[in-house]
Amino acid sequence: MSVGVFAAVLLAAFLHAAWNAVVKGGGDKFMSMTGMAVGHAIPGTAAILLLPSPAPESWPWIAIGVALHFGYQWFLLNAYRLGDLSQVYPLARGSAPLIVAVVSVTALGVVLTGTEVAAILLIAAGIISIGLARSGRANPGAVSAALITGVFIAAYSLTDGIGARLSGSPIAYFGWTATLGGVAFAAFAQWRRPGMVRALPRTAPGAFFFGGSASFAAYAIVVWAFTQAPIALVTALRETSIVFALLIGAFVLRERVDLARIASIFVTITGTVLMRFARS
């Protein structure tokens, strides 16, 4: 992975952590998720209008991607409802790179070096152990929701990676995916809570304005990176956003970080450094 792609994906991971930190304090998780999803449509529409249209062969992948992103959002909300997300969310984010790596090697014919495989394993282990470091036990329902969420993350990562490569215009590709997905989630939210979508700029401004734009920028960078490096490596590196989230929590929000989490961060960073030098 080149220095430019590596740095860009780390920037995307930081942006992902930053918008999560902004909306973290919101008590209404459904409203925050809706604000972020609908907020995607603003930069998404700009990308559609300003950039070349994706190639026709990528449109089926856009449709699949919209459905998978919606499924991810739905099961993530279930994880919020069923358990402590600080326990189950790392399980979702940490399992996704492992799934992507297995599918890439076994089904897509991608060849990964031993060093790259080791880097993916270390990053995934570090992320998952962040959740395991929490005191108490997650209930089976919450763990199931987390693992299903991880499957959706892996599925949309693979779909968007393939679609972006076919599109010839990866940012516009994600512009369409994000905008159509925002419209779909807005319709769902309007059905669940009539009148909520119209009030989002007032009731959830952080999620709608900053969350939507930062989330769009973060994943748009990742979609572009999918066209520059193996999807499995980009997916694993993207999930280091959890480390950035912990650092923001410790140094900005003054949250406590114990020795177990410090060890988890060290393992994840070790995998990140290994990935950087795995392939020129």
Score class of each variant (00 low, 15 high):
Met1Ser: 13
Val5Gly: 12
Leu11Gly: 14
Ala13Tyr: 02
Ala18Asn: 15
Ala21Thr: 14
Ala21Leu: 15
His40Thr: 15
Leu50Gly: 10
Pro52Val: 04
Ser53Asn: 09
Ala55Phe: 05
Ser58Cys: 14
Trp59Phe: 07
Ala67Asp: 10
Leu68Phe: 01
Gln73Leu: 15
Phe75Lys: 01
Leu77Pro: 10
Ala79Gly: 07
Gly83Ser: 05
Gly83Trp: 14
Leu91Cys: 02
Ala96Gln: 01
Pro97Leu: 02
Val100Glu: 10
Ala101Asp: 06
Ser104Arg: 08
Thr106Phe: 09
Val110Phe: 12
Val111Asn: 10
Leu112Glu: 06
Ala119Val: 01
Leu121Glu: 01
Leu121His: 03
Ile123Glu: 10
Ala125Tyr: 00
Gly126Thr: 02
Gly126Gln: 06
Ile128Asp: 00
Gly131Met: 07
Arg137Tyr: 10
Gly141Ile: 02
Ala142Leu: 00
Ala142Cys: 04
Ala146Asp: 06
Leu147Trp: 09
Ile153Ser: 01
Tyr156Trp: 01
Tyr156Ala: 04
Tyr156Ile: 00
Ser157Leu: 02
Ile162Gly: 12
Leu166Gly: 06
Ser167Asp: 03
Ser167Pro: 14
Gly175Asp: 04
Gly175Asn: 13
Gly181Tyr: 11
Ala184Asp: 13
Ala186Thr: 10
Ala186Phe: 11
Ala187Phe: 08
Trp191Leu: 09
Val197Met: 07
Arg202Met: 05
Arg202Ser: 15
Pro205His: 14
Gly206His: 15
Gly211His: 08
Ser213Leu: 14
Ala214Ser: 09
Ser215Gly: 14
Ala218Tyr: 02
Tyr219Asn: 03
Tyr219Asp: 00
Val222Trp: 09
Trp224Ala: 07
Ala225Pro: 05
Ala232Gln: 02
Ala232Lys: 00
Ile242Cys: 06
Leu246Ser: 02
Ile248Asp: 05
Arg254Gly: 14
Arg256Gly: 11
Val257Arg: 07
Val257His: 04
Phe266His: 08
Arg279Leu: 06
Ser280Met: 11
